[in-house]
Simulated assay, not measured.
Amino acid sequence: MSKRQLVLDAFNNKPVERVPVGFWFHFADSGEFTEGLRNPDIIRKNIEGHKKFVAKFRPDFVKIMSDGFFEYPNPVLFNIESPEKLLDLKPIGPEHPWIEKQVGLVRTLTDSFGDEVLTFYNIFAPATYFKMLYEKTGNRDKVLADLTMQNKDAVKHALNTIAEDLSTLARRVITEGKADGIYLSVQNVQDSRITPELYNEVIAPSELIVLETANRHSENNILHICGYEGSRNDLNLYVHYNAKVINWAVNVEGISLAEGKKLFGGRAVIGGFDNRPGGVLHSGSKEEIEALTEKLIREAGKTGIILGADCTVPGDIDLKRLDWVRNKAKDLSSQL
């Protein structure tokens, strides 16, 4: 069975000959994440990193990283003097270099290995792109929450405008870039003032705009509920999001793969391993990694399960550790 078919069967809760695995990490340095438009070498670095990883590890599928494109380049957002200024925001448009170059990145990589494995392009939620513009403030979530408290309609307009550009990006990376879908990364606003009710009113609509567009062009899209650096999420906010596969931070939220699969109505799930430095995957022995692999599969079964991590794994991880997971999953799958 091809790896493409193996993963598609897992996505669709069909029997599989082995439980597939999926891990990913950055190919650029953190200081380069926003600099792709200003420094084309970062895009080339990202492309070459993916190609080397695929050649060496032969992954079951690939999440294509958007390293270099973390900054949504809409100048209206760079200096917000008042929340009302957000009402002036307009889309950057479908032919902006920020969109064009991401489509080119994806097409280059799918041309290289898209016939072998399924590919999914990373797209952050509108609120995440908004927050990343205020990374240097040291409390980007507070900035978004403050603005929401002052003028929630202006914030909703801004996020929906960003969503229009992200919808264009999602459509084009699938139809022109030939990705099999997107990996949409969402996250609760890490500020208690943004209640579930306020999240559903102001934040969620923009996320659903992007997801609904992706779903019109591919039925295989992944929802990632990001627990990066310990960020906590109310998973119940996302149970109605129409994504084929769900990935969340099992080790941050304390919700197992088996529990999450039930919460999301039996849909396929990805994860199980802690992605953080010092965790079993990054630093444990072969025996510890194999034991955790077995525990995860015995708890969750092998139908509609893809073993992976809570989020992006450290870039210095030894690829043999990922192979230990895959090989143990293969051995167990033949026994169960």
Score class of each variant (00 low, 15 high):
residue 6 L to Q: 00
residue 9 D to Q: 05
residue 12 N to P: 00
residue 16 V to F: 03
residue 25 F to D: 07
residue 25 F to M: 14
residue 28 A to Q: 01
residue 35 E to K: 12
residue 35 E to I: 10
residue 39 N to F: 10
residue 41 D to W: 10
residue 45 K to I: 11
residue 46 N to G: 12
residue 46 N to A: 14
residue 49 G to R: 06
residue 53 F to Y: 10
residue 57 F to E: 08
residue 57 F to P: 02
residue 64 I to K: 00
residue 65 M to S: 07
residue 74 N to H: 06
residue 74 N to D: 09
residue 76 V to F: 04
residue 86 L to F: 02
residue 97 P to G: 11
residue 102 Q to L: 08
residue 103 V to W: 04
residue 104 G to I: 06
residue 110 T to P: 01
residue 131 K to I: 07
residue 132 M to A: 13
residue 133 L to F: 02
residue 149 M to Q: 15
residue 150 Q to K: 14
residue 151 N to H: 09
residue 154 A to E: 01
residue 154 A to M: 05
residue 163 A to Q: 01
residue 165 D to W: 01
residue 169 L to D: 04
residue 174 I to Q: 03
residue 175 T to R: 00
residue 180 D to Q: 07
residue 193 R to F: 15
residue 194 I to A: 07
residue 195 T to L: 15
residue 216 R to N: 10
residue 220 N to T: 11
residue 225 I to G: 02
residue 225 I to Y: 05
residue 236 N to Q: 15
residue 236 N to D: 15
residue 237 L to V: 11
residue 243 A to K: 01
residue 243 A to Y: 06
residue 249 A to S: 11
residue 253 E to V: 12
residue 256 S to Y: 07
residue 257 L to G: 06
residue 258 A to N: 11
residue 262 K to P: 12
residue 269 V to E: 06
residue 273 F to H: 03
residue 278 G to H: 06
residue 278 G to D: 08
residue 279 G to Y: 05
residue 287 E to V: 13
residue 297 I to W: 06
residue 300 A to N: 08
residue 305 I to N: 04
residue 307 L to T: 02
residue 310 D to A: 02
residue 311 C to T: 01
residue 312 T to W: 01
residue 316 D to Q: 12
residue 319 L to R: 10
residue 321 R to N: 09
residue 324 W to I: 04
residue 332 L to C: 14
